[in-house]
Design a protein around this nucleic acid. Structure first.
Lengths: 337, 337
DNA sequence: TCGCAAATTGACAGCGCTGTCATTTCTGTC
DNA sequence: GACAGAAATGACAGCGCTGTCAATTTGCGA
């Protein structure tokens, strides 16, 4: 039937407990024994039963990926993150359960409790905006479940992964400055999203660095969607002194800007430079291709999961690692007219 | 500590086995006993341990959602489907594991085996193109794992959910016909995808019904991406007799068509009617909003999961259910010029 | 070479549930 | 009211692993 730990033990001539020790990478096993056991496991194609391990010990080898399924317009992002998480899980023989949470109401409490009690989830990986949802964090803390955050707003005392979005935004705007642009507008993302704040901060910082004045009329509120990009752009075009470049806080809005430009007969990048943020697939599908910042979502998911696993294996407290951004300079930006 | 089945048994004055029977909805329990036990479970807030259930019995209460992460341009789709699947799982106290598969190489075999052996996955839910990937189906069959398919190409002998895409496409094109269009072009999706075939078939059927000739020059190959839509549209615009309406096999390509129309100075819908398929978020973000067909992905995920669960509970063989499509008539289509 | 602490290893119970099969409690029938 | 057969319940072992603690082996200084 199934190869059990006991079978491996018998084949190796050691006790089941020793095989168990090898399996769990405990240190108190002589190297020679360890090798023998590992060899046997390999040759017998032994696969431990998660159910038995979970029942006997306390470990489940399960992590949960929590995300907000209430309003996620950019779910490509989630898919990529999830992919990275799964990658990391794979490498450490963990399994992942996907768990969408509705932030409204008490639903999330019920679900988190279920994960913890029923499945003995060992840890949690979260994406914004869950990363900064106090009631959830509180509950996780009560359960003593370690969690790893992707792009959390509050970066102290949490583990996970983030990108220096402010620096990235600054670099992007500096690029526009170097191209000779002086009237650079910014379309902000959904208020209160960390991403919106950082990108805006980077925009301001770049202006300051370049010695350009910060002009509030060049800053328009958007909400990360294509449609809001169109509206914001129309607003900017109506200004007496139109901007020569627009930095939209994400690619979708940038696409909206390009759409609106087209509508108004403006040629991008000849009459108007446009840049976005995220480097979604859309960025290269537009014409001209969009200058933007690549946010390595997949990689970030993977790193967040890896940090969590460091903690779960007791190898430390885990860090908030920072991934590098990469400017994607493409044809939607060029010298100021 | 934890409330166990035994505790419930003691509280109710029955044997643990009887409680187990109630838990598993076995029929041979007297109704009065059942009620007592259920009441006790409820009041004691009893939560069965999946690990123990998995170890003792053969059930794991786990299903896997398999998808291709190799090339999924439209991952919004996957996210929605997954959401629906989770919904159904929730209702039946199942849990779901997400499992991306790479179709190249043998990776998928290793992963499927791992799911089956390690986790005792009870069933599988698949999205295209996995639904028709013979080696995978073969392996699942060998393992005796039931699977539910979403929009499979081969519809015989499988359970799951599908939409009558051909009818939907036909209805969409008939709508164009009714608006007076006579030169209606079609941009095809990736060859060999079931979706491409059905939509094309619906297009042809509509033409036939309307008594319009099928003209191969009005059919251009695309590949479901925005970019391919742009290219295909340019090709169509170069024709001596330009089409007055273009039916793109999905929304992304339709967006590309609108882009290309803009580029060429054609006003949609005044000069050109455009329609897509899927009703992705993009459809309402474009301007003018896109006429398309709503494919209820979330609902389909849910239904596929429910069908699977019918099978798992031994309530039947499961069906291939069909969900209704819904035309979304919006502003991108209007009377022929 | 002997003794002792440290390093390894093993014995055994039990995690919380379900399968199997035995036992008890109902039915309806004559 | 007794009895067969069905319906309902229970006893018990064991799923595959790990925690606890005891037993053994090893290494090293005296």
């Amino acid at each position: 039937m199934r190869v059990r730990l006991e079978d491996v033990a018998r084949a190796t001539g050691v006790s089941p407990k020793t095989v168990s020790r090898v399996l769990n990478e405990e240190s108190s096993v002589k190297e020679s024994t360890r090798q023998k056991v590992l060899a046997a496991m390999e040759s017998m194609n032994y696969r431990p039963s998660p159910a038995a391990r979970g029942l006997a010990g306390s470990r489940s080898f399960l992590v949960a990926m929590l995300y907000d399924n209430n309003d996620n317009p950019a779910s490509t992002y989630l898919a990529e993150v999830q992919d990275g998480v799964l990658d990391a899980c794979d490498a450490h023989r963990y399994s992942m359960m996907a768990c969408p949470l509705r932030m409204r109401g008490q639903d999330f409490i019920r679900r988190v409790d279920a994960l913890v009690f029923d499945h003995h989830i060992e840890g949690v990986i979260m994406t914004p905006p869950l990363t900064d949802y106090a009631p959830l964090l509180q509950r996780l803390k009560e359960h003593g479940v370690p969690h790893s955050s992707i792009s959390p707003v509050h970066r102290e005392a949490s583990i996970g992964v983030c990108m220096d979005e402010q620096q990235a935004a600054k670099a992007l705007v500096m690029h526009l400055v170097e191209l000779g642009h002086r009237r650079i507008a910014h379309i902000v993302g959904i208020a209160n999203h960390g991403a919106s704040r950082w990108r805006m901060a980077g925009y301001k910082e770049a202006l300051a660095t370049a010695g350009l004045p910060f002009d509030p009329q060049y800053v328009v509120q958007g909400e990360f969607s294509f449609g809001s990009g169109v509206l914001a752009a129309r607003e900017l075009f109506a200004l007496p002194e139109q901007p020569t470049a627009i930095f939209a806080a994400n690619d979708d809005m940038a696409a909206g800007v390009m759409w609106a430009a087209n509508e108004r007969g403006l040629k991008v990048p000849r009459d108007l430079s446009v840049c976005g943020f995220d480097d979604t697939p859309l960025a290269t599908q537009l014409w001209p291709p969009l200058t933007t910042v690549r946010q390595p979502s997949r990689e970030m998911g993977k790193l967040a999961a890896l940090q969590l696993m460091e903690v779960l294996r007791g190898r430390g407290d885990g860090l908030l690692v920072q991934v590098p951004y990469a400017l994607q300079l493409r044809e939607s930006t060029s010298k100021a007219p």
